[in-house]
Design a protein around this nucleic acid. Structure first.
Lengths: 204, 204
DNA sequence: CACATATTAGAATGCACTGTCTACTTGGCC
DNA sequence: GGCCAAGTAGACAGTGCATTCTAATATGTG
């Protein structure tokens, strides 16, 4: 090292995430990222091979943070707590949340997929998340994690809560207090494992 | 009329929808739309003012079809039937479903919003859909449609079922049989109006 | 104080896309 | 059969983007 760097990789990743969060995938042009950081466009290429490398790295970072927030609860067999953990994560990572949860990856990567190493890293993250779901389902059920049970778990813990939050993520600002209640009710009313009967009915 | 048209407006709309459904918003370039129809790019501008006019018209058409499929059940006060009506609609409109339900409008229209008449038409459709939701909530509840109840209805009837379907819409092909069951359970377990108690608990 | 080199700097290149413009073609009608 | 407007045809200009290239610059080390 002979010259101190003015711009770090993270500077560019943060800028890219913020731009996507604020204006959608096409707002994150290389020139916009550079402008936001205060660097010339060429400097980005000193850190990243291409635009898809920037977006891919940003995606992986956000995804990793999200998985890290939920995995402990899943591995401990607590689906409800995992679902509710999304709320504080969104509160502490509003930018990441809007980036990760409001945009289909297809819209980000359709034009050119990220380079192979990033793709592999993402696959590993997805496998990790998937394994956590399976662990949660087997811990809560009778041992066999069928296709339907996994779909149910993904809905109860991930897609459902995200669907509840999405309108408020879109409009920005704090989440209304009743979203936590809705997520809790979702878990109270719908069984994690098919055929277990609803928890509510079991309690009655 | 002196010359018969070779290409209709609908030809271009269908092509645009198909391209977005298959490859995301940026796949629907004017050149790609023209190529798919077999027309020169200039011909599209004979029917539409701009690219956003094409995408906006396609969006409105898909949205109108969707609303028309659900509104009767909502106005009749049958939230469960409305949610389940999404399934046959997706089966009969796979292309429209992927176009409408898999892409945030922001990704389609962020670069340039559709012309005013289309924006107004869309607002009218959204108001119509919204009014149907309100009607359903008031029909099922005690008369007052609070903010939270409306959010709950939107989740139970629209966002929740879509979240259940999304993985299968993404991968394409027929929907697995258990998605209907999951939607039904969602309605059985979670009350449409807050504080009514779960239908399951009430039945027990 | 010079050297080596990581890094900045930003102009230049090439490409793909939108929207325009002009010429050509079709086909019902007088 | 010729007329004429709706419509096709596709080249073209303008724009904005990702990426490249060359030159300049800073700074820890010897």
């Amino acid at each position: 090292m002979v010259r101190t760097a003015r711009f770090s990789s993270d500077d560019f990743l943060d800028a890219a995430m913020a731009l996507v969060a604020e204006g959608g995938p096409t707002a994150a042009t290389m020139q916009a990222i550079a402008r936001r950081v205060g660097a010339p466009t060429g400097s980005i290429y000193h850190r990243f091979d291409s635009r898809s490398a920037v977006l891919g790295a940003a995606w992986n970072a956000a995804y990793a943070s999200f998985v890290a927030a939920l995995a402990p609860f899943l591995l401990g067999g607590h689906p409800r707590e995992a679902a509710l953990a999304i709320l504080p994560w969104c509160g502490e990572n509003e930018r990441r949340a809007r980036f990760l949860l409001l945009h289909e990856p297809v819209a980000l990567f359709e034009d050119s997929p990220p380079p192979a190493p990033l793709r592999l890293a993402l696959e590993r993250l997805e496998d990790e998340f998937d394994a956590a779901f399976r662990a949660c389902v087997t811990a809560c059920g009778d041992g066999a994690a069928r296709e339907e049970d996994l779909a149910r778990a993904r809905f109860l813990i991930f897609d459902g809560p995200i669907a509840i939050l999405r309108p408020y993520l879109v409009q920005g600002g704090a989440l209304p207090p009743f979203v936590g209640r809705m997520i809790a009710e979702l878990h109270a009313g719908m069984p994690l494992v098919a055929g277990q009967g609803t928890p509510a009915a079991a309690a009655a």
